[in-house]
Simulated scan of single mutants.
Amino acid sequence: MATTLDDFWNERRAEAPELPVEAPEAWSFGATPEQADELLELVLRGVKDGTASSLWDYEASGDPLPVTGECSIVTDGAGVPRAVIETTDVRIVPFDAVGAEHARAEGEGDRTLEHWRRVHEAYWRAHSENPRGFEPDMPVVCERFRLLWPTPTPTSTASTPPPTVSA
């Protein structure tokens, strides 16, 4: 098992030489190690193929916005690289205009828009990186992605409901 991000990326490139030579950005979902692990598990199970971020948080942190076609390394709550995803779509929309399809793509809770709005509002009120926090019309970066590695598995049919965290 790879011990560094570079080792991890070199192993992925050995399996798929068409990947970019330089390792992409590595990051985790959520704001806590527990959220990172729970949301990563949804990705690995094939349930989660979307995420949402505050545009204001990107502006506050200076981080670049996601770009269609770019790859990312997703880490678990301990910072261990566990997945490679490719961004397939990026749209910026007001919070109150995010649609049911995007809520479903995030894979959390009961996958409804009502759940998505409740959980994301709470998330941005608690974890925002900018002084504006949450507003009903705040700009939200809605990102869709596909799992490149590990090979996606079919959506779980387990009766355990998915976690209710956000990112």
Score class of each variant (00 low, 15 high):
residue 150 P to G: 09
residue 68 T to Y: 07
residue 118 R to W: 06
residue 109 G to L: 09
residue 112 T to S: 01
residue 39 L to G: 02
residue 125 R to L: 13
residue 95 F to S: 03
residue 50 G to Q: 03
residue 142 C to I: 05
residue 121 E to A: 15
residue 127 H to I: 10
residue 106 E to D: 03
residue 77 G to A: 12
residue 83 A to E: 01
residue 52 A to S: 15
residue 39 L to F: 01
residue 136 P to N: 11
residue 88 T to V: 12
residue 96 D to K: 08
residue 124 W to G: 10
residue 131 P to W: 08
residue 112 T to P: 00
residue 26 A to H: 08
residue 43 V to P: 03
residue 136 P to W: 07
residue 41 E to T: 13
residue 30 G to N: 13
residue 72 S to K: 11
residue 46 G to M: 12
residue 146 R to S: 04
residue 141 V to D: 03
residue 144 R to G: 02
residue 76 D to E: 04
residue 82 R to E: 03
residue 28 S to V: 12
residue 52 A to G: 04
residue 39 L to R: 10
residue 100 A to K: 10
residue 102 H to S: 06
residue 152 P to G: 15
residue 132 R to S: 15
residue 90 V to S: 06
residue 44 L to T: 02
residue 106 E to L: 01
residue 108 E to H: 00
residue 127 H to Y: 14
residue 108 E to A: 02
residue 142 C to M: 04
residue 87 T to M: 11
residue 71 C to S: 14
residue 95 F to K: 00
residue 136 P to M: 13
residue 127 H to V: 02
residue 54 S to F: 12
residue 41 E to K: 14
residue 30 G to L: 10
residue 98 V to A: 03
residue 148 L to Q: 03
residue 68 T to F: 09
residue 139 P to C: 15
residue 82 R to W: 01
residue 102 H to A: 02
residue 61 S to N: 05
residue 63 D to G: 07
residue 77 G to C: 12
residue 144 R to L: 09
residue 59 E to Y: 12
residue 73 I to G: 08
residue 28 S to D: 08
residue 104 R to A: 15
residue 56 W to D: 03
residue 36 A to C: 13
residue 76 D to V: 07
residue 91 R to L: 09
residue 77 G to F: 02
residue 76 D to C: 08
residue 43 V to K: 10
residue 116 W to H: 06
residue 119 V to E: 06
residue 41 E to Y: 08
residue 142 C to P: 02
residue 29 F to K: 07
residue 23 A to T: 03
residue 120 H to R: 13
residue 91 R to Y: 04
residue 132 R to C: 11
residue 61 S to D: 10
residue 27 W to P: 08
residue 138 M to P: 00
residue 121 E to K: 13
residue 136 P to K: 14
residue 148 L to A: 08
residue 100 A to H: 09
residue 98 V to T: 00
residue 66 P to S: 13
residue 46 G to A: 15
residue 47 V to D: 08
residue 102 H to E: 00
residue 125 R to E: 05
residue 119 V to T: 05
residue 137 D to H: 00
residue 111 R to Q: 05
residue 67 V to T: 12
residue 108 E to Y: 05
residue 90 V to T: 02
residue 57 D to P: 01
residue 66 P to E: 10
residue 124 W to S: 12
residue 42 L to W: 00
residue 91 R to Q: 11
residue 147 L to W: 01
residue 129 E to T: 14
residue 141 V to S: 05
residue 83 A to T: 06
residue 70 E to L: 06
residue 108 E to C: 04
residue 39 L to V: 03
residue 56 W to R: 14
residue 139 P to M: 15
residue 87 T to F: 13
residue 129 E to A: 15
residue 124 W to L: 12
residue 146 R to L: 07
